Simulated assay, not measured.
Amino acid sequence: MGPLRVARGGPRPTHSPLACEPDMSGRCADVRAALSETTRNLTPGSPLRSLKTSLECDRVAYGVKRWSPLVAFRYPTLSYQRYLRYVEFCAAIDHPVGAVACAILRLRLKRLGQRIGVTVPPGVFGPGLSIPHYGSVVVNDKVRAGWFCRIHSATNLGESEGAAPCLGDGVYIGPGAVLYGAVTVGSGSVIGANSVVNRNVPANSLAVGSPAQVRPIGSAYEKVMPATIIAGIRKYGKQGPVE
């Protein structure tokens, strides 16, 4: 996939963090196929192109047709993500003006995050991130995640023994979930509410409980992942990034 090259906080992976290919069986085979296509079709571009792609995919994930001040009021987490993407963009520019703008935007991002209870460092999530409810979302800066992930409130993605989780594309994390340490969550997987994940979760799996147990996903993905995100996975997985 085509990440921004972020100088601070470490780069995003230049490919899907998963070693395994998604399973093509089940009711969501077409979505899973699109998830695998995101890795193959989305190629690196300029920082400006990466910014445009991130803003577009984030907006699509929220089901927002176009940006406006009213959208900022209705979706404070999406407003937070816009500042996040601008910080990533400025950090990718090797220019003194970019450094100054990055410092100002980082301050604004931090203040907004404190107000809504969201801490997502730059350079962690690929385009299409969705945080439907603000309040107590904490993500460590060593986390690396793919495209079109959805994270609910009261979640924590943390570090343990110097390592942090690595998420694939289209991962759903339910309210109250905790993921920590050197764990990999495969593309198209669902982490159930209040689950504690301290072991790897294969692609297209359901992980529930404390500690989390891996189960067949069945129809869980269709039930929990919004249609806007599934549509975004299909669109950008097959057509590539915004020009």
Rank of each mutant, 00 (worst) to 15 (best):
W67P: 04
G45F: 03
G158W: 02
V201D: 13
K142H: 11
A193E: 04
V224W: 05
S36G: 07
G186M: 01
A101C: 10
R234G: 10
I173R: 09
S36A: 11
P17S: 08
V183I: 03
P127Q: 07
I116L: 12
V196M: 09
S46R: 07
V60M: 02
D141A: 07
R27D: 02
D58F: 02
G45L: 00
E56W: 03
H152S: 15
Y80Q: 11
K235R: 15
V100N: 06
S153H: 15
P44Q: 11
L18G: 11
P47C: 00
S136H: 13
Q81W: 00
A29D: 07
R85V: 03
A177M: 12
V196P: 09
R59C: 03
R5S: 08
G209R: 13
V60E: 11
P165C: 04
V138M: 05
C57P: 10
G10K: 06
G218F: 10
S187I: 12
N194W: 00
V201G: 12
Q114P: 10
P17R: 07
I93H: 09
P127H: 01
D58V: 08
L157N: 06
V87H: 06
A92W: 06
C166G: 09
S189K: 11
G128Q: 11
F89R: 06
E161T: 12
L129V: 01
G218M: 14
S136I: 03
V171L: 05
V60P: 02
I217E: 09
P13K: 11
A91N: 13
T14M: 10
I233P: 02
L167N: 12
A164G: 12
G2N: 03
G98W: 00
E56G: 03
I93E: 13
A29Y: 01
V6C: 05
A103T: 13
V118S: 12
Y134Q: 15
L107M: 09
E159S: 13
S16A: 14
P17E: 00
C102I: 00
L107P: 01
V197Q: 06
A231V: 02
V87D: 09
G240L: 03
L109T: 12
G123V: 00
R5W: 04
N200M: 02
G170R: 01
R111S: 14
S136T: 04
V6R: 04
V185Q: 07
F89E: 13
I229D: 10
L157Q: 15
R8L: 14
T119S: 14
L48P: 02
L84E: 14
T119V: 14
Q213W: 05
D94A: 07
L4I: 10
I151F: 11
V171T: 09
D169K: 00
A207H: 14
G240M: 06
R85W: 07
A103C: 05
S219Y: 12
A103D: 08
V171H: 06
G9F: 03
S189I: 02
G2I: 01
G9K: 01
V242E: 13
G146D: 01
G158H: 06
N140E: 04
P96N: 01
I233H: 04
R215D: 07
V214L: 03
P175Q: 09
T38K: 05
K65D: 15
R82P: 08
V185K: 06
T53I: 01
T39N: 14
S187H: 12
G192K: 02
S136E: 10
C102K: 02
W67Y: 11
L55W: 04
L129R: 04
V242G: 08
M1T: 01
I151R: 13
P211E: 00
S46H: 02
